[in-house]
Amino acid sequence: MYNLILKDFKLGVPLIYLIMPFLTGALMFIPGWIYFIVLLYFCWITMPNMFGGFRAQNDLMFTAMMPVTKNDIVKAKVSVIVLLELLHIVIAMIFGMISINLYTNITYYFFEPHMGFWGLCFVMFGIFNICFISIYYKTAYKYGEATLVSIVAAMLFAGIAQWIGIESSYVHDIFYGAGLDRTALQASILIAGILVFIALTVIGYRIASKRFPKVEI
């Protein structure tokens, strides 16, 4: 499995996709922006391009002829997606922390980049993953439907979460303006978000690993 991940990073993931987290992460410096968009760029750009590359290079057949199990093929691809997502989210978090300290006097209309917000981002990626991974492995090469459905699902979640954050004063109080008193609450939202991300990704992987063995290569 480790060899398959290495294979993808050496052959299927061009350097630009490892630089992208820094480029999109830098958007965290736009004061008071909709920061969900920073991570959505991964879904809009990196994912379809990367999977288009896999298809163009006949990666599926290449991999299927190696002495590896079909389960490992799915597990490795899911790991590559998760590793790239973590890279995007961690770099955005670091840039977000700098951004918050840089602009001390602005009013955030959209979510402030505190821990609670990053928890929501993990949930967004989890929703993206369960949709993308499960749909993609119906064929293991058609990525259009998987990309479309997963992006719409992730954007709907982000849009609804943001709308509630603005409309509901209760939710607004939780996510906006992190004081020391709210660090515990924010951290627990982050942890809950991470757990949801793990759960949704694992479910996506399970569905995919049931579907992939039936695929004709």
């Binding site: 060899n3 290495l6 294979k7 050496k10 052959l11 299927g12 290079q57 006949n58 990666d59 057949m61 290449f62 190696m66 002495p67 590896v68």
Partner: peptide
């Protein structure tokens, strides 16, 4: 397969399997 890669790169990947 992966025809934009160099022979060396592809071999380095394949031999590990």
């Amino acid at each position: 397969f992966h025809n934009r890669s160099k022979v060396k790169t592809l071999t380095d990947v394949i031999k590990k399997f």
